[in-house]
């Protein structure tokens, strides 16, 4: 059953094609072109996935619509750096000037079903390169739960918060589906994301 809407930005190495090909999650996803977003009825879905490649200026013009979807019980997963907030609770990206590898170390602040069994080390590094998962931070809204932070200053990286009857999961770095094919525990994020979506806002 299709229950998740993904905005497609036509990036071949974005991980989206890999995710859609997976038999466990692919059949649950409908993609919509970035600029066809107005043609879909959000009420038909449980979740909306907003990738790092989305046109945030466009989405910020649809903020009321996205927010109404969440407040009515929907789930939004948004990734990337925020330049144009498109949902209550999202604030602008804050860089870490002249960061070093230690500043990019992902720290788990709170357990969350999407990251169960995922080693933070597998998020910090992809093939030995740090920074894909996060290289800056965002100020979470009051009442948010910080799931991961970055570096010794424990800057907020991933957090979740309630909005009306729905929920927002924000990840301040590269899309979680880019970790498909990582060959380590980071691959658990995508099936666990869909299990979490399926469990509903009460999970």
């Amino acid at each position: 059953m299709i229950d998740t809407l993904l905005i497609d930005c036509e990036q071949p190495e974005s991980g989206v094609p890999d995710m859609i090909r997976r038999p466990d999650v692919g059949p649950r996803i409908m993609t919509v072109g970035m600029y066809d977003f107005d043609r879909v009825t959000l009420d038909d879905f449980r979740a909306l996935l907003v990738s790092m490649h989305c046109d945030q200026l466009y989405l910020s013009g649809r903020r009321d619509r996205i927010e109404a979807f969440v407040r009515a019980g929907g789930t939004v997963l948004a990734s990337g750096h925020v330049a144009w907030p498109f949902l209550s609770g999202l604030d602008h990206f804050q860089p870490i000037p002249d960061y070093r590898v230690a500043d990019l170390e992902v720290r788990r602040e709170r357990e969350h079903p999407v990251w169960r069994g995922v080693a933070p080390q597998d998020l910090t590094f992809r093939r030995g390169v740090a920074g894909f998962y996060g290289r800056g931070w965002h100020r979470p809204p009051a009442g948010a739960t910080v799931i991961h932070s970055l570096g010794p200053r424990r800057l907020p990286l991933d957090f979740s918060y309630a909005l009306g009857r729905g929920r927002v999961l924000f990840h301040g770095g590269n899309d979680l589906w880019t970790y498909l094919g990582a060959g380590n525990s980071a691959e658990r994020m995508i099936p666990q994301l869909f299990a979490w979506i399926g469990a509903g806002a009460d999970a």
Binding site: M52, H53, C54, D55, Q56, L57, Y58, L59, G80, H81, V82, A83, W84, F93
Partner: peptide
């Protein structure tokens, strides 16, 4: 520019 965060920056 395409309204993405990286084009913004």
């Amino acid at each position: 520019h395409g309204g993405t965060y990286y084009h913004a920056e």
